[in-house]
Design a protein around this nucleic acid. Structure first.
Lengths: 130, 130
DNA sequence: GCTTGACCTTGCCAGCATGGTAAGGTTTAA
DNA sequence: TTAAACCTTACCATGCTGGCAAGGTCAAGC
């Protein structure tokens, strides 16, 4: 399989596959005589795994650990769970931060009449300590 | 005022002040003979404004527009409100995306016993279509 | 055999916002 | 005079992804 086909069936762009190879997230693939990368089904599985982990917001560094756990039949599920929970905590923090921003902004926006007049509590709120 | 003092009282690092200048978010400041940037109180106000907008998650591009509205006594508050609401929509989307990730991950983590055994629904969930 | 188009290769540049570090000049206070 | 604390510019790094350029390769059709 060439890289294009793998990209299509894994939903990871060829660009990213090469990148993942360059940073050592996936193994370097064998090449044809002319230098084309050659892949097998298991590579597609791995890339799909990576893609799903990305979709869940894991960083490539975390995915590196997930992949090594995935590869390791001796792993303890506790290790995986620990990683997942650390990520959940991280997501929660980001959600909280964004929600706080949102709420502040909604409050400011509510008090802004939003017409042709220049007076605007949103700008005041940004200019003064909130 | 030198840049360090401005940085301290605006909570924007000297590094960032120079950067904002280089991308035209703030005006180039006058210099002393030896090349030191010189600032006034109004620059501190502007940088605080920028800092608060950053804290609310506005991008520098959005802030560029906010600053020009702030500077413009002829502005319509509707323009500010429009910007704010676009940002709220954006925040809502990001919050939703993160929350979806979180929920999926929590579901997976719940079903993982998290002990010494290698069998792990989290890895299964990543490997197979969720 | 030759052309064409679709594929592949590498390499470099871009964003976003910020931090770091290096190598040097300036100011201020002791 | 010297040391510390400041300032200057310039470059590199992050994390993830896309884009473009300049070239090589392969398969199909004429």
């Amino acid at each position: 399989m060439n890289i294009g086909e793998v990209a299509k069936s894994s939903s990871v762009s060829a660009k990213m596959i090469r990148h993942y190879e360059s940073i050592g997230l996936i193994h370097t693939s064998p090449r044809t005589l002319s230098g084309y990368r050659q892949y097998h089904d298991r590579d597609v599985h791995l890339l799909r795994f990576i893609r799903r982990a990305r979709d869940l917001g894991f960083s490539l560094e975390q995915i590196r650990q997930l992949v090594s756990l995935w590869d390791n039949p001796e792993r303890a599920s506790a290790d995986v769970k620990r990683l997942a929970q650390a990520h959940i905590t991280d997501l929660d923090q980001r959600i909280t931060a964004l929600t706080d921003m949102r709420d502040t902004l909604v409050t400011l926006a509510k008090s802004c009449h939003g017409d042709h007049r220049p007076d605007c509590p949103i700008l005041h709120g940004l200019a003064a300590a909130s």
